[in-house]
């Protein structure tokens, strides 16, 4: 039976290895075949991180709580920046949750080749599996932080801050997807560009830190309405997503269809560009990494 198949499929090769990948051969079907591996990587990332800790996943809650406290003090008490009429704790917490998700997607996908070189050097599997698994395992972390936010919203509802659940909540997964897409796209572009020359990777930690300040995380976009550097924040494709996220949750924020469309186009652009570059590099990056 097997021989018959082979004979029929004369000169039907399953794999052809050539010096260079053609630019547009993405092979997403192969990534799909390795979906089990993707889930196992997600599991590994999640489980291995908290082995031999007592608090385990609780650590996901402590970090955003502390950051929120710092923001409350710095931006609320000291700098006295308003929060669009949103309860400050909830305002900061929501911003931190979505920003953390973006930053985690970006920084961990951007080191795909360098951190996994030892595995990549020994076995072949579609390299895209790793950045995909990173984005997914970070969604779980985002979920935990989002749950924390919901608990606080419920808590504040008892203290008289109304919690309004509208059909806008249904857009939240879409916004998270946008955030993931931009983080993923930029991340794999950086990881592909840094296999040979590492300079960009060093720049990244710095850029992520600065990025938070030109995204309306610790202040609302409306706060900048009259300032002359407003353009710096509006040009940032992440700003409309953060504002829309807050609009969905609290009903207050500066959202425009144009802004969101801009973010969507930007995401599609970086994802497509990222996958093309990644595809080009993945074949023989081992020689230079």
């Amino acid at each position: 039976m097997k021989d018959a198949v082979l004979n029929n499929a004369q000169e039907q090769w399953d794999i052809i290895l050539e010096p260079k990948n053609s630019f547009f051969k993405l092979n997403l079907r192969e990534v799909w075949r390795y979906r089990d591996l993707m889930w196992l990587f997600v599991r590994r990332d999640f489980v291995a991180q908290y082995k031999q800790t007592i608090l385990g996943p609780v650590w996901h809650i402590i970090q955003p709580l502390l950051t929120t406290l710092i923001f409350l003090f710095l931006f609320g008490t000291v700098a006295k920046i308003g929060t669009d009429g949103i309860e400050p704790t909830l305002f900061y917490m929501s911003g931190i949750a979505i920003w953390n998700y973006f930053a985690a997607c970006l920084t961990s996908t951007s080191s795909t080749f360098v951190t996994n070189a030892s595995i990549f050097g020994k076995v072949y599997f579609p390299r895209l599996v790793i950045p995909f698994s990173v984005v997914i395992s970070n969604i779980i972390r985002f979920g935990i932080q989002f749950g924390l936010l919901l608990m606080f919203m419920i808590g504040f509802a008892f203290k008289g801050v109304p919690m309004v659940i509208t059909f806008y909540w249904l857009y939240i997964p879409l916004l998270v997807l946008l955030m993931a897409g931009i983080g993923f796209g930029l991340g794999i572009i950086i990881s592909s560009l840094t296999t040979k020359y590492r300079d960009m990777a060093l720049l990244l930690t710095f850029a992520v830190q600065l990025g938070m300040y030109i995204t309306p995380i610790a202040y609302p976009l409306s706060f900048l309405a009259t300032k002359k550097y407003e353009w710096l924040v509006t040009v940032n494709p992440l700003s409309p997503i953060v504002e829309a996220f807050r609009y969905c949750l609290f009903g207050h924020a500066t959202v425009s269809i144009g802004g969101l469309l801009y973010s969507i186009i930007f995401m599609i652009f970086v994802v497509v560009l990222g996958m093309l570059i990644f595809n080009k590099v993945e074949k023989d990056f081992m020689d230079t990494v």
């Binding site: 794999i15 052809i16 290895l17 050539e18 010096p19 260079k20 990549f120 050097g121 020994k122 076995v123 072949y124 074949k283 023989d284 081992m286 020689d287």
Partner: peptide, 9 residues
């Protein structure tokens, strides 16, 4: 398939 040839296939 952990690296590609420089020439040939």
């Amino acid at each position: 398939r952990t690296t590609a040839p420089t020439k040939g296939d």
